[in-house]
Amino acid sequence: MIPPSFEYLTPSNISDAVALLQKHGDEAKILAGGHSLIPAMRLRLAEPGYLIDISGIGGLDYIQEESGQLRIGAMTCEAALEESEIVQSKYPLLLDTAKMIADPSVRNMATVGGNLAHGDPANDHPATMLALRASVVAEGPNGTREIKIDDFFPDFFTTALAEDEILTEIRIPSPPSASGGAYLKIERKVGDYAAAAVACQLNIDSSGSIENIGLGLTNVGSTPIRASSAEELLKGKKPDENMLAEAGRLAAADSEPMEDLRGSAEYKRALVNELTQRAIKLSLQRAEGSR
C-alpha cells in the first residue's frame, strides 16, 4: 500500500501555513501526527496534492493550566497527555481517554488537535471534549476565533473549521473542587475504535449532589453526541440507582448508532445505557475522592 505522490510543504509559522491553505484550497491537507491521514493515503482513500506539515511550527505543543483553563496545544501528542502531571492529577477523563486511544506507539505521534480536526465521530477526544465543555481555537487569515465544542462537529467527518483555518489550541475549563470524570469504552480489542464509549465529567456540591455534568458519546452517531437529556436529568441531583438507570436510558435514546461489524444499533444503545451509568458512578467516586 503505497501513498500517491504529493508536494510536501513545511511552513515555519501559522500564518504561512494558513497562506498555503488559501493557496491550495481543497487540494491541501494539514499533516499533524498523520495517523489518520497517512493510512488513508496508503489506502488511496485520500489523495491530497499538498501536505502542509505543521510539526515544524513552534509553540503548538504544550499543556498549561492558567486562569481557570487547561490549554492544550494542538500538536500535543496523546502520550504527552498520559505523561502530564496536571492531567494525571486533575483531569481523569482526559487521562482515561488518552490511554484508550489506539496504542502507545500511535499515541506518540497522534495529536489531540488531529484527533478533533479529523472530524471522525469514532475518535475518542470529541466526546471527551463535549463532556469537558471545551472549546477550540482556530487560526485563519483573519486571525483567531474560539469555537465551542458543541458547534465544532456539524456533520459526518465535517468540522466547523473553514478550509483556510487551522486548529491551534484546545481550551478546557478547569474543574472546580470535588470534580470527577471517566471515559469508558467497549472495543473489540485494544486499539480498536469504540463499539460505544461514554465520557463523563461532573462536580458535586457539599451534599454530594451533582452541580454540573457533561456527557459525551463516541461512535454512536454521524457526529460525536452530547447526551443532553441525561445531563438535564442529573443536574442538581444526587442520583440513586433508579435515576442512574433513567440517565442511561436517556443517553441511549440520544444516541443514533448504525449497525456495523461492531454490532447492531440496539446493542450499541444498550452499551451506551450501561456505560453511561458506570461512567457517572465512577465519576462520582472520583469526585468524592478529590474533595
Binding site: 499533516l31 497517512i38 505521534m109
Partner: peptide, 10 residues
C-alpha cells in the same frame, strides 16, 4: 513510533 505511518521527510 510506527515507521510505516511516517513519511521520511517527517
Amino acid at each position: 513510533v510506527k515507521s510505516c505511518t511516517l513519511y521520511t521527510v517527517q
